[in-house]
Amino acid sequence: MSRALFVKPSSLSGPALSVDMTASFAGLELPSPMLTASGCAAAGKELDAFFDITAIGGVVTKSIMMQPRSGRATPRMAETPSGMLNSIGLQGPGLDRFIEEDLAWLNNRGARTIVSIAGETAEEFGKIAQRLRNVGGFEAIEVNISCPNVADRGQVFACNPVSAAQVVQVVKRNSDARMPIFAKLSPDVTDIVEIADSVIKAGATGVSLINTLLGMVIDPVTMRPALAGITGGLSGPAIRPVAVRCVWSVRQAFPDIPIIGMGGIRSGTDALEFILAGANAVSVGTSIFNDPSAPFRIHGELQVALAERGFSSLADAVSYAHRPVDTTREDPITSEQSSDDDWDFISE
């Protein structure tokens, strides 16, 4: 671990005309940091009617399991202030049909794909990874460990550092050595840094932060839980501060690991918050329901937001909020006089 974390914006005089939006992390080189959040874009096909799906960084597909799954009973969602609860229960076509139809479509279309996988046991995750390895045609794997572990009385993998690590280990073992593997963590834990530490040690290339927060709504008319599944995952702008805090904490603990940030991103400045907190790329989920073009729109807004702040590249903005506070001088970004040694690069 010796890469620089704090990089100064190279242009300090007024908005740059163009900002290099390349997101380089985990060995990937994406033309945009914008991704779709798993479960909020299916496999990209429907959204391609609204914007060129190949223009964003990539599509993170709905978490796929080995077998076809019907999901949970309805109602599956409830709108909440600046967000929603969902309890879909990972409805999906199963791995075979996903590969034949969804992945094939994405490849034909020329879209970059991050395949999200889920399982009820660590072995299931492993089998999915193995099968995917033989098929290829995707850039990275996102491991959705926010699902119940059948072997642990349904406790969510992501809430236990040992089970979380087990899953990551199995996926790693069954994947190509160069395949980037992102463990997607749940914010419903006492210490997300501990879980991040555990999955990184287990071989994860990076982490995706965050999955939904467990929530509940009671319908005042029926006076019963609004969702058939009783509880559901809270998403949308309502969870954004929680998500930014998680990205910040994990970045602070791990200056170098790749982080995909998400949780309530609705605009370019929302995306910027995650980038400044330490995300190398960001996913847009619930906002797609509000605006099906959101990932594409936000790419443009983020580019403008970066230019306005004097950044000439996205890479320069990553983790910028972690720079040391300097009380003796003006903020370097607004000052013409600052020089390279105004603030330090940290390295180990």
Binding site: G39, A41, A42, A49, G71, P75, M77, N86, Q91, I288
Partner: peptide
């Protein structure tokens, strides 16, 4: 009329059990 989150087919909130041409029920 089922409650919908996205309306465009990406979220799977609006499902109901329907029998297909092959006689199989799917959500």
């Amino acid at each position: 009329e089922e409650a919908m989150a996205c309306g465009i087919g990406v979220c799977m909130t609006c499902v109901l059990p329907v029998i297909g041409d092959d006689g199989v029920t799917r959500m």
